[in-house]
Amino acid sequence: MEKLNVKNQDILETIYQLEKENGKARLTDIAASLGFSKSRTNQEIRKLVDLGLVREDKYGPIVLTKMGLFEAERVVFTHLLIMTFLQRHLGLDNETAEKDACSIEHVISEETIKAIVRHLEESHDNIGDFNLKEAEEYLVKKKRLSELKVGQKAQILKIDGPKGIKKRLMEFGVIKGEIIELVGTAPFGDPLNFSLNDFHLSLRVKDADNIIVELQE
């Protein structure tokens, strides 16, 4: 899928925080905490609905889908990781660390994240409420199936997406616990060629987006 932009990520993060604090996220609360107008917020949320990250029941609260939760947690963990690093290892004050983490979290590369995790591990630090192992799992190991690199193997954790597609995939044997490997990609990087169990299966990036996997060593 296309990379999420800063605004997408901020909204996901906000919904995640609101769900955690209040149990649910309403449009008014999201707008208030982002400082956007209601109609602008609504527009942005439409985009997330189209991306399959957020569900909006009529007059109900706004809910993260499995994929939405996955993306939100990614951002939240990245944020915490950077915060910890800036505060404890570079000695920055809370406010500056918070502000900078908010910007860095959107652009930081996987390599840098890995390096920070390694560095913190050496100094036996934990970040926020989460321990490092968990953070590493989220930031380095958990991926969308479409994010695998050729030759990487991963275990299937969750399948999301429209019901029909999900069922089709599952009946094909794409189910929780299976090991799947990206063998190659077609011209222009789409569709993808996976090996699963005893056969080869080709999926489009769009459908592989809806599957969360954990990288295997």
Binding site: R168, F199, H200, S202, L203, R204, D207
Partner: peptide
């Protein structure tokens, strides 16, 4: 369009 799930047989 329908999901694209295609087997590549040996």
């Amino acid at each position: 369009s329908a999901p694209f799930v295609l087997e590549l047989p040996p």
